[in-house]
């Protein structure tokens, strides 16, 4: 219910101009204003990673970022990543390795994995484990997620 701020940014390769409340999170903007629901609310305080997005290439928790801070930046969500070759490769690997159960954490993990692979294409198992420690999964026990990321490199 605070004042609206005009922002201008790139979302999944498309330029967007939106008026958003000053206190709105990037997560709320993506889900409720733009209507991209692949980015999930899991905790709202940066502990679970379900809302992982990439901003100027870096992964962060959309719930901890103000929507207004997207201004002038390049934002990628799971919907954007999924439409690219690296996203398709990750999806295929997550599917093939059984890394998906309820799937609620999956978009965040795929986002985090894309960043991890890009930053460190030679990442070994330990580095992959460390690389996704900010993403919680309650179903899989992580084993198959680690294998999926290793298999998508």
């Amino acid at each position: 219910m605070s004042a609206k701020v005009e922002i201008d940014f790139t979302l999944n390769g498309v330029r967007e101009q939106r008026a958003v409340a000053a206190d709105m999170s990037a997560l709320a903007m993506l889900r409720d204003v733009v209507g991209l629901t692949g980015t999930k609310y899991g905790c709202g305080e940066g502990e679970c990673g379900a809302c992982t997005i990439r901003v100027d290439g870096v992964t962060l928790n959309a719930c901890l970022m103000f929507a207004v801070d997207c201004d002038g930046r390049e934002v990628t969500t799971i919907e954007g990543l999924a439409a690219t070759p690296p996203g398709e490769k990750l999806r295929a690997s997550f599917v093939e390795h059984g890394a998906v159960q309820c799937g609620f954490c999956t978009p965040g993990l795929v986002m985090q994995a894309s960043h991890l692979i890009e930053k460190n294409p030679g990442a070994g198992e330990e580095e992959i484990r460390r690389g996704i420690e900010g993403n919680l999964c309650r179903c899989t026990g992580y084993r198959k997620i680690i294998e999926a990321i290793a298999g998508a490199k």
């Binding site: 991209l36 629901t37 692949g38 980015t39 969500t77 799971i78 919907e79 999924a82 996203g87 990750l90 999806r91 997550f94 599917v95 059984g98 890394a99 998906v100 159960q101 799937g103 999956t106 978009p107 795929v110």
Partner: peptide
């Protein structure tokens, strides 16, 4: 899993 492709692409 049959539902995995949808889930892994958000």
């Amino acid at each position: 899993k049959m539902d995995a492709p949808e889930k892994a692409s958000g």
